[in-house]
Amino acid sequence: MSQPYAEVVGDPIAQSKSPAIHCFWLAALGIAAEYRAHSVAAGDLGDYFAARRADPNWRGCNVTMPHKQAVIAHLDRLDPLAERIGAVNTVVPEGGALVGYNTDVAGFLEPLQGWLGKRHLYRMARVLGAGGAARAIVAGLAAERVTIVLAARDPAKAEALLAELDPGGEHHAVALSHFAPPTDFVFDDRAGCFDLIVNASPLGMRGQDPLAFDFTHAPPGAIAYDIVTDPADTAFLKAARARGMPTIDGLAMLIGQAAAAFERFFAAHPPRDRDGELRALLAR
């Protein structure tokens, strides 16, 4: 008899680290199930879900680019958070219905909880990029009462995203190029403040253009967070560490969002005490 299984779908899909993560956890817990990567073109999403609905062994799927928004048309209902963000990265069959969730928010916020659990006079984040990943990041930060400066090649796109996801927020949209040249801006006293700089774009990823960010735009004590996973230790993070800034890499978000999805697929908590081993596996 075939084993239960979940999978990740996207186009392309060969670069996905999700199978390595989920298979590591399944083996560690001794769960007799599989997790696969499955390439699905945009025009084949309907056929894919029609086939999976009829498969009793299918426990759901993660959804990666470019399908996080297109997949919504093929689902029966959305979790309220996924509906608000307008993007789905996890699909689970529940009572004969296909339900869409977004675990990117939980994955992104997880490594920030130590800071966000404290009280601050003011919270600000500079988010670089206004693509699909930025939707979850903006929604998550807005819910944590963070004022956001969202930078995009097209500032109008950033402004529209902010207006859609947090219309009552006092956020700002700027051109991505704003952060490239040095600035002589003198930051005020940041004691008691939370400052975050997030690369939410593919810039700096292997094979992509570098991220042009001048660290004179970084307030003292700011946290540098890069969601790029290949390489995990990006030039942006190295430059931040050289300036004494705390850093968070893309594997933190990747593992965090996968953990939330794993629980829905396999009704088990992944062994997070083994994250060090998992990171070493993903770095190979």
Results as ranks from 00 to 15, higher is better:
1 M>Q: 02
1 M>I: 08
2 S>Q: 07
2 S>P: 14
3 Q>K: 10
5 Y>H: 00
5 Y>T: 03
11 D>N: 11
12 P>T: 11
12 P>A: 08
13 I>A: 05
15 Q>N: 06
17 K>V: 15
20 A>S: 09
20 A>Q: 10
23 C>Q: 14
26 L>M: 10
27 A>L: 08
29 L>V: 11
31 I>V: 15
33 A>S: 09
35 Y>W: 04
40 V>T: 01
44 D>W: 06
46 G>H: 13
47 D>A: 15
48 Y>C: 07
49 F>L: 09
50 A>L: 10
54 A>L: 07
56 P>R: 04
57 N>E: 10
57 N>I: 02
59 R>S: 05
65 M>V: 15
66 P>M: 05
72 I>E: 00
75 L>W: 01
75 L>G: 00
79 D>H: 07
82 A>E: 03
87 A>W: 08
88 V>N: 01
89 N>I: 10
94 E>A: 12
94 E>G: 02
95 G>E: 07
95 G>K: 03
99 V>H: 00
99 V>A: 00
103 T>D: 01
104 D>S: 09
105 V>R: 01
107 G>I: 07
108 F>A: 01
112 L>E: 04
113 Q>E: 14
114 G>P: 06
115 W>C: 10
115 W>H: 14
120 H>N: 03
120 H>L: 06
121 L>I: 14
125 A>C: 14
129 G>H: 02
130 A>I: 08
130 A>K: 03
132 G>I: 14
134 A>G: 07
135 R>A: 13
138 V>R: 00
139 A>L: 10
142 A>Q: 04
142 A>N: 04
142 A>F: 06
143 A>V: 08
144 E>K: 02
144 E>V: 04
147 T>P: 03
150 L>I: 08
152 A>N: 11
152 A>R: 00
153 R>I: 15
158 A>G: 09
159 E>F: 11
163 A>C: 10
169 G>S: 05
172 H>C: 15
173 A>E: 02
175 A>K: 05
178 H>G: 00
178 H>N: 00
179 F>N: 00
182 P>I: 13
182 P>F: 13
187 F>L: 02
189 D>M: 05
190 R>M: 12
191 A>P: 01
192 G>V: 05
193 C>H: 09
196 L>Q: 06
196 L>P: 04
196 L>V: 12
198 V>D: 05
199 N>K: 08
202 P>W: 04
203 L>N: 01
205 M>N: 01
206 R>L: 14
206 R>D: 12
207 G>Q: 06
208 Q>K: 09
211 L>S: 03
212 A>S: 11
213 F>K: 01
213 F>H: 02
214 D>C: 14
216 T>M: 02
222 A>F: 10
224 A>I: 12
228 V>D: 00
228 V>Y: 03
230 D>A: 15
231 P>R: 09
231 P>H: 11
232 A>R: 12
240 A>I: 11
241 R>H: 11
242 A>C: 13
245 M>H: 15
247 T>M: 08
250 G>V: 14
252 A>W: 05
252 A>K: 04
254 L>F: 12
256 G>V: 09
258 A>E: 03
258 A>M: 04
258 A>G: 08
260 A>T: 05
261 A>G: 13
262 F>A: 03
263 E>M: 15
267 A>V: 14
267 A>S: 10
268 A>M: 09
269 H>L: 14
270 P>L: 11
271 P>W: 06
272 R>N: 12
275 D>Q: 08
277 E>L: 12
279 R>W: 03
281 L>P: 02
281 L>A: 07
283 A>Q: 07
284 R>L: 07
